[in-house]
Design a protein around this nucleic acid. Sequence first.
DNA 1: CTGAAAGCGCTTACAG
DNA 2: CTGAAAGCGCTTACAG
Lengths: 345, 345
Amino acid sequence: MTQKRVSIKDVAKRADVSIATVSRVVNKTDNVTPQIYERVMDAIKELGYSPNTAARSLVKQRTNAIGIVVNNLHDPFFHDLIKGFEMAAQQTSYSVVFCSALGGDVKSKEAYVKYLSNGVVDAVILYGSYFSDESVVRYLQESRKIEYVMIENDVPGLACNKLLINNYGGAKNAVKYLINKGHTRIAHICGNPNKKVTIERFNGYIAAMQESHLEVMDGFIQYSSTDYKSGFERMNALLDLKEPPTAVFCSDDAIASYAVRAAFDRGLRVPEDISVMGFDNQTILPDRYRGPEITSVEQPLYTIGMDSIRLVSERLKSGQAEEPVIRTYETKIVEKETVCEYRKR
Amino acid sequence: MTQKRVSIKDVAKRADVSIATVSRVVNKTDNVTPQIYERVMDAIKELGYSPNTAARSLVKQRTNAIGIVVNNLHDPFFHDLIKGFEMAAQQTSYSVVFCSALGGDVKSKEAYVKYLSNGVVDAVILYGSYFSDESVVRYLQESRKIEYVMIENDVPGLACNKLLINNYGGAKNAVKYLINKGHTRIAHICGNPNKKVTIERFNGYIAAMQESHLEVMDGFIQYSSTDYKSGFERMNALLDLKEPPTAVFCSDDAIASYAVRAAFDRGLRVPEDISVMGFDNQTILPDRYRGPEITSVEQPLYTIGMDSIRLVSERLKSGQAEEPVIRTYETKIVEKETVCEYRKR
DNA sequence: CTGAAAGCGCTTACAG
DNA sequence: CTGAAAGCGCTTACAG
């Protein structure tokens, strides 16, 4: 299928010039007499020549490409983030490539980061919420091969570009929002325990309860498994309590969607009988969820996607070593259909 | 930020061997005495060396990478396809990278294909349903630089690997399914006119009607715009007819979802008052659709995603020029909630 | 304005 | 088993 490549030499021979001259017309770097320019262009067209990126990268020591590494590209959670990447990619001169590490597989993530680092791209954008991502970032930091930015995962003490989300504050605000609605019996369904954000949001929940002097009743903290579908059974556990909560703050929307399903299955109304709040304000929920729209905490993933590409491309262009950029994005509560004022029944 | 790269030379110097020897231990190609092996490994570790992909690709004339080019990576339409790619990627030794051309932008698609072709990957997988994709495939075919496979878009007469979907047959079956349910007044809402699949499905609709000797009434064919949201107004146009259809076959699920919304907005029940059928059996529908699950025609995108990677990787491994593979995947009807038996009212 | 030459970081026959 | 050398396909000072 693939035939012998046509290289700069072939063009040079055909146009009867040196390879240096061919390079000059291809890159429009130096002046070339019109006649020679023509001859070379003709040869290029006739042979269907286009320069080899690998060779060019090798000598120029840059690839003009940016690589993005995420966990599960197919996950609807990434919808807005990817849109942000795409939008910024369209406006930059860099080629942008995505790599996906299926599941939470660190090995695969590491492999992609190494692959990209070794002369494939000039910068890497890494999204990660897992504790295990730490080893990946450390590699990036220690190898010091390329520019990179870490999204979401804050490895304390690591001096790299970071675009972070205030999960702690967002969760705290969410719970205070529920408190302001009159709720006092507020439970929490945790997320995947291998994710840092799960802990941050958990801490936000605790802090809000403490600050409002509300007691966390026995069984009000439900530790879910790595699968968001466990939100279903966790919600059932809450509803099985002698005195169930009147509001449930879930670590993310996917879990919340299953919590709502569980309530519905028991004939309860949401939010009239029980309020449910999520996190992420995901545009697309998994598994064809059709319940009420979930009141949630929005994180600006679209913006973060755009900003990350802009950040690295600016840093690449400036060339000189600058201080790492660390930015924390605030969240905002999005009122929808699953939370209402507490009323004594 | 990025510091001077450590190259094979640095390692060689440190271990006091030749670069050839370093290369041998890195690639485990030849035997090396244990002492030297140790020395080199130590040097590699101390310096944090890892070989430059671009340089290696240049001499080996292969990159061990596969590139995938799609239109809108964020589009939930690709959910299953991407999952297939990811799954196969995990099982192959190739690195897999995704590129996304935002919107239907041919220029951008072409740019990515060229970028990838010129020494970045060994093979390209191209998904496309637009007529305009033809120029992209032609580039791939004429440049003959790399192995590639085209998904969905059949450019007649082009001898390349193709994984196709029987859109015509699928649409025909869908309409016959409606006919078997007793419907005779069957309308069609077309899809984006710039997509080939739109025409194929349209032809399937016509064929089914013809073969069953059913008349296509005035106004029963609704040409939608490039935006699937136009399914809303197209459905309204159908319902405004003096004698509206009893069933509507939509070119895809996204359109169907808006057709259902339109029916609901007029207080109609689906399917009791009007049956609606889609195409794609999309796992995730756009814009938080919450209506009944749409009876649809499933195309095996997950399988196609996996097969495409397997296909190119096998061909790359075999090395020799083989006949292009052309495979057409059949669709199947998935009965859900938006179609019912016709009953005279 | 054009060409010869060095070199980017590797791999791989070819000697020894 | 190891090294010197050629070469992958480019770019870019350096001469002329």
